[in-house]
Design a binder for these strands. Structure first.
Length: 121
DNA sequence: ACATTGACGGAAA
DNA sequence: ATTTCCGCCAATG
């Protein structure tokens, strides 16, 4: 946490952004998913959803506490980051293991599984 | 030092 | 409704 309000205040460009992204991602409940944009909005960097992707990419690097990167998809529910996992199917497998249906690299009934940090957190 | 490229997404055309 | 354009900025060639 960083801000006096308790809300993360780090923005892209600050070294804390990456850590905050990981922080939020770790709070995504199993069986739920969120989007890059949703995390960016929560962190007050609505236009930097790409940076969230960059941060998630680093999350897979293994270092630090594990981050459930498979629970972050794009706004359409597509597993756009699947190619960054050990194998192209790892992301989908992990989601299915949590009860999230995936068809054609896309979360089925995305809205029902969507978890918005701005609302839920 | 300069150009291109993204795990994106909203706005403009 | 669909397609194209840009902002955001770290990383890479």
């Amino acid at each position: 946490m960083s801000g006096p309000t308790g809300l993360p205040t780090a923005r892209p460009g600050s070294g804390d952004f990456e850590r905050d992204v990981h922080d939020v991602a770790r709070q995504i409940p199993a069986g739920r998913v969120t989007s890059y944009g949703a995390i960016a909005r929560y962190l007050g960097a609505a236009r930097s959803s790409r940076m969230v992707g960059w941060a998630m990419n680093r999350a897979l690097s293994g270092e630090g506490d594990p981050v459930p990167a498979h629970r972050v998809v794009n706004r359409l529910g597509v597993l756009s980051g699947r190619l960054h996992f050990p194998t192209p199917t790892t992301m989908a497998q992990r989601l299915r293991a949590e009860g999230v249906e995936v068809d054609r690299n896309q979360v089925v009934d995305f809205d029902a599984h969507f978890w918005d940090p701005s609302t839920e957190l």
